[in-house]
Structures are given as structure tokens and as C-alpha cells.
């Protein structure tokens, strides 16, 4: 029976396997006709939303793969704003608010608060966490 899932990603694209595992899990969900209510990027997972991540060409670019997945399946992808700002991930609004010299949030993602995690969890059948 198809179910609604919220997926929480807390691992950075480098240094842990959890982001890659989460992406594979999300692919499996859509392949089996489940619904992705929201993907919430929290803690070090916010680095997956950086447009500046540049691995060597013969290695997987996980942030690019996340962006492609999110846009291809039109999934709601929210990055925790507090966790992002702590780690130097921001959109142009935050750039001007904090008067920084650059913004680096990929277009597929949006910044918002923890309420988005709670609201998605409350309206999903399952919440699956990767990377804690």
C-alpha cells in the first residue's frame, strides 16, 4: 500500500555515507509509488544544498544528484535555516540580511524552520532519518 514519507537527511555529502543512502531510499520510494511529503535537510545535511560542492569529475556529485531528483519529481525539499546559517549555507535573502559576499543555496531547495519538519512528520505515515 502506498504511504506518505518524510525523509530527514542529517549527513553531509562528504565524510559520511548517509546522504547517498538517503537519496537511494528516496529513489526507491518513488519507484514503488510512495509519496514523498517532504525531504528535510538538517544538521550537517544542509551541505547537500550547496551549489558550490565540486568533487573530482570521476566522483559522484551528491548535491547535484539531490537537485536533479528534487526537480525531476517535484519534491518539497526544505533546509533548516538555523542549521544552514551556522554552516554557511544561505540564499540571496539571507545574504542581504546578513550582508555576506555570496549566496550558495541551490535553486531546488528552500530555507525554512523546524516547523516544516514537524508539520511534515505529523502528516506522514513514516518519518525516516539518515545520518544521526
Amino acid at each position: 500500500m502506498p504511504m506518505k514519507y518524510t525523509v530527514v537527511v542529517m549527513g553531509a555529502p562528504e565524510g559520511s555515507q548517509s546522504s547517498r543512502t538517503a537519496l537511494a531510499f528516496c529513489h526507491a520510494l518513488v519507484d514503488q509509488n510512495h509519496t514523498l511529503e517532504r525531504i528535510f535537510f538538517y544538521a550537517d545535511g544542509v551541505h547537500n544544498a550547496s551549489m558550490l560542492v565540486t568533487p573530482p569529475q570521476d566522483e559522484q556529485n551528491l548535491p547535484a544528484d539531490w537537485s536533479n531528483f528534487i526537480q525531476q519529481y517535484d519534491v518539497d525539499a526544505v533546509v533548516c535555516i538555523a542549521a544552514a546559517l551556522r554552516r554557511g549555507i544561505m540564499d540571496t535573502d539571507e545574504q542581504s540580511r546578513y550582508q555576506k559576499s555570496a549566496a550558495n543555496l541551490s535553486a531546488a531547495f528552500s530555507l525554512s524552520g523546524l516547523g516544516q519538519l514537524i508539520a511534515a512528520t505529523a502528516s506522514s505515515d513514516r518519518t525516516i532519518t539518515f545520518g544521526a
Binding site: M10, A43, A82, A83, G113, L114, G115, I118
Partner: peptide, 17 residues
């Protein structure tokens, strides 16, 4: 790690909602 603090923030957010 930040996990403990992140968990508490999530708990507080759930309480607020």
C-alpha cells in the same frame, strides 16, 4: 556532535506546534 542540541530544538518545535 550537534545531534543532542538538534534533537532538543526539534522537540521544542513540536511543542510549539
Amino acid at each position: 556532535t550537534s545531534h543532542a542540541n538538534d534533537a532538543l530544538d526539534a522537540v521544542l518545535a513540536a511543542g510549539a506546534f
